[in-house]
Simulated scan of single mutants.
Amino acid sequence: MSPLNGVLLDLATIDQGDLDLSPLDRVCGAWRRYPQTEPTQILEHLGDAQIAVTNKVALDRAVLAAASSLRLICIAATGTNHIDLNAAREHGIAVANVVRYATPAVVQHVFALILALTTRLPDYQRAVASGAWQQHERFCLMDYPIRELAGRTLGILGYGELGQAVARVA
């Protein structure tokens, strides 16, 4: 059996030079690495690859039909919305994505947004940056009402991986 060929279609979206990509070399005999792939370059970049790794490059029905060597698409993210899953299945191409990726970081970000929006942080940041706070006659700008979280109820919509993690923290 000949060694597999792989292609990374949009490496710049996941690597800023800080990833050790050498373990990939144990999976495939040869890797082609592209910092980005424009829609007009997809088929050229896929070439004879059996494995494609993508983060944001869309692989639609027409691309999957034309990529006759492709057997596996690895998505370097959680979502699969940019891959035509039905076409992949019809052409015998397996699709794998990253599950449970960055769950703690996403939950932390949700709470940061809750606090920032409740305290009107973006509004007050703009007021300070524009000088409005410093120029106010009372040196205390109160243009944006701040709500407190005390006594409020937090509703969690969606109870998948992220919903469960938010519920554990809350």
Results as ranks from 00 to 15, higher is better:
46 L>G: 07
106 V>S: 08
100 R>W: 08
63 V>A: 12
160 G>F: 01
127 A>G: 05
39 P>E: 09
44 E>A: 11
96 A>D: 05
67 A>E: 00
166 V>D: 00
110 V>E: 07
116 A>W: 08
116 A>Y: 04
3 P>V: 09
140 C>Y: 13
105 A>R: 05
5 N>C: 13
168 R>K: 13
152 R>F: 01
17 G>I: 09
12 A>S: 13
88 A>K: 00
70 L>C: 05
82 H>N: 12
155 G>T: 10
93 I>M: 04
54 T>E: 00
27 V>M: 13
89 R>K: 15
85 L>W: 01
104 P>C: 13
80 T>V: 14
111 F>T: 07
9 L>D: 02
128 V>K: 08
21 L>V: 03
86 N>Y: 11
111 F>I: 06
23 P>M: 06
82 H>F: 09
58 A>G: 02
22 S>R: 14
25 D>C: 10
114 I>V: 15
80 T>H: 07
71 R>V: 03
132 A>C: 03
115 L>S: 11
32 R>P: 01
78 T>S: 13
6 G>M: 01
51 I>A: 00
68 S>C: 10
61 R>Q: 12
39 P>H: 08
128 V>H: 07
162 L>I: 14
164 Q>F: 05
60 D>R: 02
122 P>S: 12
105 A>W: 04
127 A>V: 07
70 L>G: 02
84 D>L: 02
155 G>M: 07
18 D>T: 12
27 V>C: 10
137 E>G: 09
16 Q>S: 12
21 L>T: 02
151 G>E: 06
134 Q>V: 07
96 A>I: 08
129 A>M: 07
102 A>T: 07
110 V>T: 15
51 I>N: 04
120 R>W: 11
159 Y>F: 15
149 L>Q: 08
81 N>S: 13
64 L>V: 14
27 V>L: 15
163 G>E: 08
147 R>K: 06
79 G>D: 12
15 D>E: 02
5 N>R: 15
157 L>A: 15
102 A>Q: 05
146 I>V: 08
127 A>C: 09
61 R>W: 04
115 L>Y: 09
1 M>F: 11
81 N>Y: 08
89 R>T: 06
126 R>M: 09
9 L>N: 01
157 L>R: 09
